[in-house]
Amino acid sequence: MARLLSGEEIETALAALEGWRREGDALVRDIPITPDSYDWLSQAVTNEADVVDHHPDIERTGQGIRFRLTTHSAGGVTQRDVELAARIDHVVNGAARDRG
């Protein structure tokens, strides 16, 4: 089973993850997007998640999309969540460059 990160380890990880925050037992990031971007962005993140076999909760919000990461089997945030957050950032930043 994956090891839960300490509060200090989570804070250190969040310092390197732009736009992410801790909400209870999860890492969360809200990203403003246009409504027509939701499907391709959620699919691109799902593809990354499939590679590492660790899947986020993805939710459509009024302003865009929300990613919530937690390791359910461990009951909180693990290194797998931090790694997936970084992969999501890579997808989002690449999409911004492609569209910008």
Rank of each mutant, 00 (worst) to 15 (best):
L27W: 12
L27V: 12
L27G: 11
R29V: 14
R29A: 11
I31C: 09
I31G: 03
I33S: 03
D36Y: 13
S37I: 02
S37Y: 08
S37T: 07
Y38H: 11
Y38E: 06
Y38R: 10
D39Y: 11
D39Q: 15
W40T: 09
L41F: 13
E48L: 04
E48I: 03
E48W: 00
E48D: 04
D50K: 14
D50C: 07
V52Q: 04
V52D: 05
V52W: 01
D53C: 07
D53R: 14
H54Y: 05
H54T: 07
H55G: 00
D57C: 08
I58V: 15
E59R: 15
G62S: 12
Q63C: 03
G64F: 06
I65G: 04
I65V: 15
R66E: 00
F67N: 02
L69F: 11
L69C: 04
T70W: 12
T71F: 07
H72A: 05
S73P: 00
S73T: 01
A74C: 03
A74K: 00
A74S: 10
G75Q: 07
G76I: 10
V77Y: 02
V77R: 01
T78L: 09
T78G: 08
T78D: 09
R80K: 15
D81H: 01
D81R: 05
D81A: 05
D81K: 02
E83F: 08
L84C: 08
L84T: 01
A85D: 07
A86N: 06
D89A: 03
D89L: 13
D89W: 01
H90N: 10
H90K: 13
V91R: 10
